[in-house]
Design a protein around this nucleic acid. Structure first.
Lengths: 207, 207
DNA sequence: ATTTTATCGATATTTTTTTATCGTTTTAAT
DNA sequence: ATTAAAACGATAAAAAAATATCGATAAAAT
């Protein structure tokens, strides 16, 4: 179906629907917006409107074929294509990401990690190559890298970001607590674990 | 100042302001909403309205004393109190969090991690104790634990969550991709790294 | 001392997002 | 065959969030 304008809020929920649907065994079963809503703790109408943006194969009285929904949501989220990615900064968070098997399902293939400026890496077995930053440019040119993941300390983040931009990387997933400056055509997704815990604490305090 | 109703959107931005302000050397300097907005890539009015919810010490022509802002935002976010926390599931993500020094700044003190059901832990040096799950209940009763962090595989998450709730934990930070079922008075913050990358990929695809 | 300027804080408007309503359609039951 | 029920999809209303406007005020400049 043709592309609609999808809000940020909906975009945050789509992966949740997808994940829920993937856990359903019988992919040829039908599922309704109401069932999804109940399982995930949303209101029915919200789920129906979200789904309507990416899938129009719903049937009255039955709902949606699970496989249709998985296909259409997945397609919108880009799961049906593969984007190569690299990590710079294999500290603990970098290693955790490098080792996480689940990302390939979402269209991302992490090729390697790079250590920045002589930083020694944590010494436990890695399944993917960990290279020196001096090899970064060469590696990127050769491997069609589309996504850069930054897990270096704050003070190096902008510098690494600039390197990535120079290599033509258009999407950056940033775990450093700094607002990166990038050209307009580069997307940055900021991941901030400290903010996460901070919000949780404030909810305890202010509830 | 008295408590206002703060929206989820504002709550997500407050930690960003706080982090930015903490990096300013001269805490006795004045800073305006406009300066913060420019540095962080927001529009001025948004920052002013956010700040107005937690701080009313602004001066015309000058703005806010950095130290006032840090104090008031931090106070709202709960940074001026300390909440004890434990992690269950010290895999890679659990270890990354256990080792991250930055959380103490945000009012959270991670006491220990627990391994679930005979899972062997990754073998690299830890700075905090890693205990067996059989010690969990006893540990929680003795240490006034307020926050539970779940980093176990999906299939164990609800079970661990139930244990935490039974121990009187009212706030849970969940890294497993499952919607936990909890009583009304328990807060769950869902952290989903796969969703993060998925959203980034969709932005590449649909831009 | 007066004027200008920057910024706040309050109020108002616009936009976006969420939620509600309702007619239509298809399946299933009577 | 008829009726009832469940769920969709479209339209409408309400709520929330973002943005704009503007007077007031304090600092700085003239």
């Amino acid at each position: 179906m043709e592309k609609k304008n999808i809000s940020k809020a909906t975009l945050e929920r789509l992966p949740q629907y997808l994940h829920y649907l993937e856990n359903i065994e019988d992919k040829d079963a039908y599922i309704s917006s109401r069932q999804i809503a109940e399982s995930l703790g949303f209101v029915e109408i919200k789920v129906r409107k979200d789904i309507a943006l990416v899938c129009d194969k719903g049937k009255p009285k039955k709902g949606f074929l699970v496989s249709d929904l998985i296909k259409d949501i997945g397609s919108y989220l880009g799961c049906d294509e593969i984007y190569n990615a690299v990590i710079v900064g294999p500290g603990k968070i970098g290693r955790a990401i490098l080792g996480y098997q689940g990302f390939s399902r979402y269209g991302i293939n992490i090729l390697a990690a790079f250590t920045h400026h002589g930083n020694k890496t944590i010494d436990y077995p890695a399944t993917k190559p960990i290279l020196d930053l001096s090899e970064f440019n060469d590696f990127c040119s050769k491997n069609n890298v589309k996504i850069g993941i930054i897990t270096v300390p704050v003070q190096y983040a902008q510098e690494i970001c600039d390197m990535m931009v120079k290599q033509g990387i258009k999407a950056i997933w940033n775990f450093a607590r700094i607002n990166l400056v990038v050209p307009d055509d580069v997307i940055v997704r900021q991941e901030d674990l400290a903010a996460g815990i901070s919000i949780l604490v404030s909810q305890i305090k202010n509830k």
